[in-house]
Structures are given as structure tokens and as C-alpha cells.
Design a protein around this nucleic acid. Structure first.
Lengths: 126, 126
DNA sequence: ATAGATGCAAAGAGTTTGCATAGGT
DNA sequence: ACCTATGCAAACTCTTTGCATCTAT
């Protein structure tokens, strides 16, 4: 039986409160505000556990480590800022992507990642 | 000045001859047919060098290590088989993706990866 | 002969795992 | 009290780097 620990609650709360998908490191830093001695191994273990139980999901990114976000209802994609590396949700989807695949290939999903500058970095005009 | 070595030639040849983007490990295995003592460090060093000089390009994939392919002229995307993990080129692009980004965000590029079963794995009905 | 390239092994970075202990239930 | 969860450190995997040696020019 799975237990409710301060660490697990903090990790879940941080992800639920975030407005964007977080990296394990971001989760660690944010959750340490609540549980100061929190270790990275605990973060990884809980991310895996929360993914398995379905309350959060991993966001795989091209060439970067995964981010984690609450399980959403709607299909959506992501935007990664080339300046601060943070990832944001993007709503909407071009749709009908299966037609792009070569003949004989079965498509059952896709990942779309947009790149550029987030509003904050644009304002800071880095 | 950059030299022409058996290792470098073999690595370049393997990538040019492939019909799909190859992982460093795939490059190593294929190039060893030509240069038996080839080391993985040499593969990595040459991949970086070839990317820098522009003759090949890295294909970043969500949650997987990069693959390498010759520099193509046309913008295209990729398909990764969930069964054999191999990556294939996909021609075409849904286009007009910048509109999906939140207001204030500047989009300057994108990556699209399709997932499913490649023709070969479909035939093997794994 | 010179200086870039290679192979090996060690070093890094990120993630996972083993183990003794802390702490939910 | 029992047994899961934690923190630390070691182990792992993938990639990069240091160094002595090899080799293209």
C-alpha cells in the first residue's frame, strides 16, 4: 500500500501548481521550499510512481531531459524557449499527421515541439 | 587543417549510404565493417566535426539520443518505430505551426516526430 | 617532421539502485 | 510493529576529455 509522505505530497503539489511542465531538477528546487532535505533520488522515484499511477505524465523533448506535468484531458503540444530552456504548453494540434508517414507504416501518436523565445525572454530581449 | 582518415571516411560513408538517420551506436557498428578497431570516442568526435562543418545534421528525438543524417535540402520530419526504435524520414510538414504558440512567444522552428510501427515491424507483426 | 586523429581509459552529467534508517499506517 | 519511503552513496549509461601513440600531409 502506498503512503502519503511529506516528500510525495510536496512533489505532487509542485507539479499541480506549475503552469508549465517541470524538469526533475525544477521539481527538486521547488519542492525543497516545503521539504528542505529532499533528495533528487526521491524526486525521481516519485516522478516514476506518479507517472505509473497516472496522476502526472512525462513530456519527452527532442534532445532534452523529460519534463513532467499533471495529466491533462486535452491533447496538446509544447514550446521550448531557446533562451531559458523552459517548456510551455501549446494548445491545439495540426491534426491528420498520419498521412505524412511512408506507406506501410502505422502511426499511433506524435510529438510536436515548437522552438523560439518565450514572452518573458522576448521582453528581456536577451 | 583537417585530415582524411580511414575512420572519418568510413563514418561519413555509412551516414551517406543509410536510408535513415543513424544513432552513434549504429554508426559505430556499421563503420566497423570498414575499420575494425574503430572506437566509440572517434565516432562521437567525428559526428561533432561533421555536424560543425555542415555535412551531416543531428536529429533530436523526444526521449532518445540523437540520430545523424546527411544534410538534406528539404525540410522534413521523422518517424520512430516503437518496436525497433529505428528512425525514418518523413517528408512533408503540416506547416503554419507558429499560430499555435501563446501570444508574445516568437516561434523560429519546430520538431515533429511520429510514432508507431515501421513497415518491417508491421510485417513481422511483433 | 609536424600536428591533427585515434584508441583507451578516466572523467562528467543525469538517472537508477542498494542499503540502513526514518516514519506512515 | 510492519513495511514502505527516504537519503546517501555507489552503480550505470551515455557522452566527453586527457594523454600517449599513430599517421596523413
Amino acid at each position: 500500500m502506498e503512503r502519503t509522505t511529506r516528500q510525495r505530497s510536496a512533489i505532487r503539489a509542485v507539479i499541480d501548481a506549475a503552469s508549465r511542465p517541470l524538469s526533475p531538477q525544477e521539481v527538486l528546487e521547488a519542492a525543497r521550499a516545503e521539504v528542505s532535505g529532499l533528495g533528487i533520488a526521491t524526486v525521481y522515484r516519485n516522478l516514476k510512481l506518479l507517472v505509473d499511477e497516472g496522476s502526472i505524465q512525462a513530456v519527452a523533448l527532442p534532445g532534452d531531459s523529460p519534463r513532467y506535468e499533471p495529466t491533462h484531458l486535452a491533447h496538446h503540444h509544447h514550446f521550448q524557449c531557446r533562451s531559458c530552456q523552459r517548456v510551455f504548453d501549446v494548445h491545439g494540434c495540426p491534426g491528420d499527421l498520419a498521412r505524412l508517414a511512408p506507406a506501410g507504416f502505422a502511426v499511433d501518436g506524435h510529438e510536436l515541439t515548437l522552438y523560439g523565445r518565450c514572452a518573458e525572454c522576448m521582453a528581456a530581449q536577451g
